[in-house]
Computed example of a mutant assay.
Amino acid sequence: MEIKKAVIPVAGMGTRFLPATKSMPKEMLPIIDKPVIHYVVEEAIASGIDDIIFITGRSKRSIEDYFDDSPELESHLHQKNNDKMLKMIQDISSMVDIHYIRQKEPRGLGDAILTAKKHINDEPFAVLLGDDIIVNKKPCTKQLIDNFQKYGRSTIAVEEVPLEKTGSYGIIKGKAMDDSLYILEDIVEKPKPEDAPSNIGAIGRYVFTPEIMECIQKTAAGVGNEIQLTDSIRLLKEEQKIYAYKFTGKRYDTGDKVEYVKAIIDFALKNEETMEQIKEHITDLNL
């Protein structure tokens, strides 16, 4: 089956970026002139997705506004004959079909995904977390979709992580099929380095069979008293094979301050308007 639907959870509080995220969703933090969430949606579209469900929460209204029409701004740009900017603004509001479902209270990633159950309607679907930007000619989500279409089973994106950072990831134990693909044997949520089954962590991209929804419903609250997606994945593993795919591409965890700054620098060095001045500035720093 084709994967045409994607769930993008954006209900998190963004506490790592306080006080900025007190009144601004972390997903709307800009990378030069586009917010993080714009890049995530672009990846979904480039992967063949045409139907996106945002799982939102309080104080996330600006995400809806961003992807909505903006008549006043469009009128202003039209009057100024700024056709290039006008087209860009209009394109944002017509990128893809978008729906919004509010997660009434922050009960974890698993619970956020479960709120989209009726809309998913027993179809396989993708999940993209709203604070990961992954750069590659072939989108990360498309890589997972291709593996799903080959094997017909849920596939999660993974990468090697520093051992001291295992406490920030769901860490897998897997049986290697080749250099980039594993059959999932176990996944542990945020283990201490000494308890981690490997240094291979799940990142914010998944493709699921619809049975994951039933597994989420059966999942009891876990770490942080939240419905952890990793616990639901463990339940699904008992019913059917799950694959872990070591994706190709450069990932930026923009929910991390250092990674966010790295993303800005790297994107600025590729931007025609900013690249030369940023290169000069870096040279002048004489680091």
Score class of each variant (00 low, 15 high):
Ala112Lys: 12
Pro106Asp: 15
Ala44Gln: 08
Lys175Glu: 15
Ser94Pro: 05
Asp51Gln: 03
Leu86Tyr: 02
Ile55Trp: 05
Gly110Lys: 05
Lys257Ala: 09
Gln217Trp: 02
Met95His: 10
Ser93Thr: 08
Pro124Trp: 10
Ile55Ser: 05
Tyr100Ala: 14
Gly224Thr: 11
Lys150Leu: 15
Gly167Asn: 10
Ile45His: 06
Pro162Cys: 00
Leu144His: 08
Lys270Tyr: 05
Arg61Pro: 01
Ser59Met: 07
Leu144Asp: 09
Lys257Phe: 00
Ile278Leu: 15
Arg61Val: 11
Lys237Arg: 15
Ser93Met: 07
His78Gln: 09
Met24Phe: 13
Arg234Ala: 07
Leu229Val: 14
Ala263Pro: 03
Gly130Glu: 06
Gly167Phe: 11
Ser180Ile: 08
Gly167Leu: 12
His78Asp: 14
Phe67Trp: 07
Arg234Pro: 00
Glu211Asp: 14
Val261Arg: 13
Gly12Gln: 08
Lys218Pro: 01
Lys84Trp: 01
Lys118Arg: 12
Asn271Met: 02
Lys237Phe: 00
Ile134Ser: 12
Ala263Asn: 05
Asp69His: 05
Ala268Gln: 00
Glu27Gln: 13
Met95Arg: 14
Lys138Phe: 09
Arg251Phe: 01
Ser180Tyr: 00
Asp122Thr: 10
Leu287Ala: 11
Ser198Ile: 09
Gln90Pro: 06
Lys270Ser: 13
